[in-house]
Structures are given as C-alpha cells and as structure tokens.
Design a protein around this nucleic acid. Structure first.
Length: 630
DNA sequence: ATGTTTATTATTTTT
DNA sequence: TAATAAACAT
C-alpha cells in the first residue's frame, strides 16, 4: 500500500493530481523521482489504470530499473507490467515491432551505438560520394548528422542550408539501410515518423499508454518532445518533472524551452513547485545557491530543515597525480574514522572522462575498490567488441561491419578478405556463401574461408539459444579463446570475457535480439568494477544520484568551465552558463560533505600547462570554505 | 600475412 | 599528447 502520509502537501498534490497535464518543477534533492514512483503507484492503486497503461520515461535505463524496484515494493508483482526506461529504449521497441513499415527487417536489426561503427559507415559513405575520407572532418560530420536527427531533419530538409552535408547524410543513411542497421539517433527519427505516418500505430499506442510520466524533462530535445506530444495527443495525461537549472545537454539538442513553455503547450496544465530539499546540509545548499545566483533562469533558493553541516573543503595540489592521491587518502581516512561505512558512500565527479585515469591508478595503487560509472570503457575493449561482433553477425547476417571485424579474428589467413571488406566491398555473409571462392587465390585461404563459414553456420543454428551458452559456443568454436590465451595479457582479457559472460547469464533477456538491445542501450554495465567501491563518474552521468561524500575534481579554468566553453567566438554566454549549471549539479549530489579540488599544473593536449583555479570558485561564499594546506 | 614504424589527427559532455 | 590509421618491411 502506498503511504501518502510521508509526503509533504506539495508532493501529495503532485502524486494525486491524476487528470490532465502536470508540470512539477523542483530543485535537487526534493524527491522528484519519489514523486514519479508514488504517482505511478497511486494511479494503479486507485484503479485508474492497469499497470500496463503506465509509461514512465527516465533518463537512464538504470533510473528505469530503480523506478520499477520502488513500484514493486508498493505494488508487488503487477509492477512488472509498467513500462519504464529511456526514450531510446521505447523507440527501439516500437521499431522492433513496426520497423517493417520502413522496409527494415525488424528481426535482424543491428544497432550502431559505437562511435567506431558509425565512423566506418561514414567513411564508406564518403567513398561512395567520391570524396577522400581523410580530408573530411569525420567526427564533426557525424555530429552534424546527429544534430540534424535530434531536430527530426532528414537529408532533404538540410539540402537548402547545407547541400554538402545533405549529400553526406543521405549516403550515410544509405549505408546503414543496406546493412539493416540503425544508429542511436535513428531510433527517435523513425519512431516519430512511424507515429506520423501510421494512424493505426499511433492509435494503438495511445490506447495502451494512457498515463505518461517523464523524469528529467529539462533535458528533452525536439525529437523526444515530438514523440511525447504524439503519444499524449488524445488523453493529455502527461506528467513531467524537471529542474531548469539541471539542464546539461544543450549540445545534444535538449532545449529548456520545452519546460519553460509547458504551460503554453498545455494551457490547462497544473503546475506544482517543490521547494524543500531533503538531501543536503545547509552549507552545501548555501554554496549551491551562490553558484546559481548568476543564472538567467530557474534560479531558486533551496532550503532545508537539515542541520548546517561541515564546511566545504577546498584543496589545491601540484598536479593531477597529487589530486588523485589526496582524494584516495581522504576516502581512506573517512572510512578509518567511521565517518562513512564504505568507499561506495563516496564519489569523485569530474568534467571529462580522461580524468578518470589518474584516479583509477591511485585507487589501484592504494588497493581501494572503485567503479567507473558510465563505464563504456568496458564495452570498448577489443575482446568485448570482437565478441559482440560475432553475436551481431549471428543475429544479422547483413551486418558487414561485424563481419569485417571477425572474419580474420582470431587470425585465420583471411587478412586480404578482411581488408576488402573493411575497404567497403559489400561482401555479406550471404554473398560469401553464394560466390564461394570470392576471388581468393590460395588453397589455404579457400579452406580457411570454408571453415569460417561452417563455424558461423553452426553458430547461426544456435541463434535461439540463451545468450550465455551462445557466448560460450562463440569463444570455443571460433578458436577465440585458444588464440587469446597465447596473447599478451590474454589472461586478463579472458577474465573480461568471463565477466561479460556472467553479465549475459544474469541478464533477463529472452533471446539474442533482446540481449543485444540491452547491451547497446546500456549506459552502465555493472561488470568487472566493484559497485561497493568509490564511484568515479563524469558530472553528466550522475543525474538524480546522491552520495554522503562528493569530491568535485579538476576545478580549473579550462576544465570546469571547459576550454571549449571559454574560447567563445560564440559569445552567447550560454555555453559558460551550462558549465556553471554543471558545477551546481556536481555540488548538489552531496548529502554531508563536499570536497573541491584542483591542480596547479595539468598536462593537457601536448604540453603541461599552469592551470588557474576555476572562476566558479570565486562565486562561492568564502566563509563556508575550509582551505586545506598541502 | 603479420608485426613494426611512421603519419596523422583530434583533444567535452551521452542515449 | 596519445591513440589510431595507414604505409612499410619482413
């Protein structure tokens, strides 16, 4: 049973106002996520809707799982029928069901989540246009394509403004299409188009999902907003929760105006504002308020009934190594003094992923357990990507990128073939089988190819097996395991593969398609690293999370705020403002203690440069800071 | 066919 | 600078 008595009056109103559009604006630590969970529970509890009619969109899959866990504690079994997850996961589910409308083979889709896969597809597209891929700014092009997709623009829509981009974009889409593949941004692009073109699909989804709840609404972009608008079109039961100050993703197309103008879009919307903070000490909130004072919108004075708490510690070190050493030593001291129970109660937050490295080394050296969040490093490891490529190939024989990756891995005398495929020859598995010798000269190569095709055929016959055994078969039959064992640090890489297999076995995915979806959507595979350890994460990836102790590392001009936001010909001022919001989000993750650290020298791109303390430090109330000497 | 050397090129944040 | 791709040598 849901207990409403634990909520304050505003929260209770947000939970029980069940009809029509609702906007909840609230600062950090005000129980936003709790409101979403309670509201979903209330709707079901009151019999207003079946669990399956509730659609909860969260920012990460992890938040979705957390939400379902909370619901299960109130509702029990029926909570399983609530759909909770990210926009991308929802859109992909739509395409798996109705992707055929666009001529996709929905049962064998490949997802190019990986930057490398997208880059090779782009390289191929450039070649087809007769352009030299080397001379092109490939990363920038990919980003421009991404941005266009965020805004639901197709190649023809950008033709007027940027004909060259349009041509590249179109060729890139052609390459993906031939491979029956989608990149991340395509999910929303095609999902929205599906709703626009297929009235029957739109009707069916609107009937199914009659209550829509959205967390972190300040970060929706045009495509996501359009998807919500289409889904909520008839019933208007759209509840969104957000905090304008925590908008961090404008570079990804997220637009704060959707939150600020929610009332214009839905004139009958009810608006509730949650003011009280339940998370942090008064000192931490005072620092946060000082930071946000300069913001143009969403400024709010957070208040709390919590005790004043300890001063914020400011610490300068000579270089990043010393900074990392300080953090690790301080965590160990807090544990020894009993201030915190385990390293898992502490987090180090930073601006760029590259900063994780020194911290990781320091933890390793001190024997302090840690986990790197947003751990895409794990998925980026060569052995994991090889394995995933095998799985993708088994799932989708059209996937030329996957084939190119595995055809000669482990080495089986097919290097030439590999080169041809990587150079862009569209040699699918089907063509290799049909046109067997495929221009291969030597007998040994021919035999190698025949063996390879045979192994893949066996694996494909196992495609319906659960992921665990399938992975085992891949490692064994392809000779990958034997090969790796003989390689340098092969044992460590085998251990990675083992932990990935463990993840696969624990996965709830029913079949290969579901498993591959899970992996490509996962932002946080909790493999390998220790979830009870010190959390290392970028600030962007800690939305909605909290820790008793938070270190904000690298508070230097050029890092936080990042140089890209400083060297502005842009002059908008908004880039710098977003950095400030980022800093605000970092500080407000903390419950009890905040440490701010910076290094006086930081080896940057090329040479090591003297670093200036972040200009944001000057905004903080000096009497609340405790400066620690070296 | 494989391993080594050299050239290049990008250096923010994520689903 | 460091990570990666292409060229090169064996």
């Amino acid at each position: 049973m849901l207990d409403l008595s634990k909520l304050n009056p505003e929260q209770r109103e947000a939970v029980t106002a069940t009809e029509g559009p609702l906007l909840v604006v609230a600062g950090p630590g005000s129980g936003k996520t709790a409101v979403i969970a309670a509201r979903a529970a209330y709707i079901i509890d009151q019999g207003l809707a079946e669990p399956s009619a509730v659609l909860a969109v969260t920012f990460t899959n992890k938040a979705g799982r957390e939400l379902k866990r909370r619901l299960a504690s109130v509702l029990g079994e029926s909570a399983r029928q609530v759909w909770a997850g990210t926009f991308h996961a929802f859109a992909l589910r739509m395409l798996r069901q109705w992707g055929g409308h666009f001529g996709f083979d929905p049962d064998h889709l490949s997802v190019y989540a990986d930057q490398g896969d997208r880059r090779t597809a782009l390289t191929q597209a450039l070649k087809e246009l007769g352009l030299d891929p080397k001379g092109q700014p490939r990363e920038a092009l990919l980003q421009m394509i991404s941005r266009a997709k965020d805004r639901l623009l197709w190649p023809k829509d950008v033709a007027g403004r940027d004909p060259e981009l349009s041509a590249v974009y179109e060729a890139y889409q052609g390459v993906l299409r031939r491979r029956n593949a989608l990149d991340f941004d395509d999910f929303l692009l095609f999902a929205v188009r599906l709703l626009e073109e297929r009235a029957d699909v739109a009707r069916s989804l609107r009937c199914t999902h009659r209550y829509i709840l959205v967390d972190e609404f300040q970060d929706v972009n045009h495509a996501q907003h359009r998807l919500l608008t289409l889904l909520a079109a008839e019933h208007g039961n759209l509840c969104v929760v957000g905090d304008p100050v925590q908008n961090l993703f404008s570079w990804r197309g997220s637009d704060i105006r959707y939150l600020l103008e929610f009332q214009r879009d839905y004139p009958n919307a009810r608006v509730i504002s949650l003011e009280q903070n339940y998370r942090s000490t008064q000192v931490i909130l005072a620092v946060a308020n000082a930071l946000s004072a300069a913001l143009r919108y969403g400024r709010r004075n957070l208040w709390t009934a919590n005790p004043p708490g300890l001063p914020v510690v400011l610490r300068a070190t000579d270089d990043p190594q010393a900074e990392a050493a300080f953090v690790v030593a301080e965590v160990q001291r807090l544990i020894a003094e009993g201030a915190v129970g385990s390293p898992g109660d502490c987090a180090v937050l930073y601006r760029t992923n590259a900063q994780a490295r020194e911290l990781e080394l320091a933890c390793l050296e001190a024997g302090l357990p840690y986990s790197v969040r947003g751990n895409n490093d794990f998925l980026a490891r060569k052995e994991i990507r090889d394995l995933l490529a095998y799985l993708r190939l088994v799932h989708n024989p059209q996937d030329v990128v996957a084939l190119g990756r595995v055809v000669n891995t482990p080495p089986r005398r097919l290097a030439t073939l590999e080169r041809r495929i990587r150079a862009g020859e569209e040699l699918t598995l089907g063509r290799l089988e049909a046109e067997f010798p495929c221009g291969l000269k030597g007998d040994r190569s021919r035999k190698a190819l025949r063996d390879f095709l045979e192994v893949v055929a066996v694996l494909r016959s196992m495609a319906d097996a659960p992921p665990g055994p399938l992975i085992e078969a891949v490692l064994e039959l392809t000779g990958y395991r034997t090969w790796l064992r003989g390689q340098e640090d092969g044992e460590a890489r085998l251990a990675n593969l083992e932990s990935f297999r463990g993840f696969a076995e624990r996965s709830e995915a029913q079949d290969l398609a579901e498993f591959l979806d899970e992996v490509s959507l996962a932002s946080d595979l909790e493999t390998g690293s220790d979830p009870e350890g010190l959390a290392l994460s970028t600030i962007h990836a800690v939305k909605g999370l909290e820790w008793p102790v938070v270190f904000v590392a690298g508070l230097e001009d050029g890092l936080l705020p990042h140089a890209r936001a400083l060297d502005g010909l842009e002059g908008e001022g908004s880039a710098l403002e977003e950095e400030l919001r980022l800093c605000y989000v970092a500080v407000t993750r903390a419950v009890d203690r905040v440490y701010l650290t910076y290094a006086r020298r930081r080896p940057g791109n090329g040479r090591s440069l003297a670093a200036m303390p972040s200009r944001f430090l000057r905004r903080m109330p000096i009497d609340l800071l405790e400066r620690r000497a070296a």
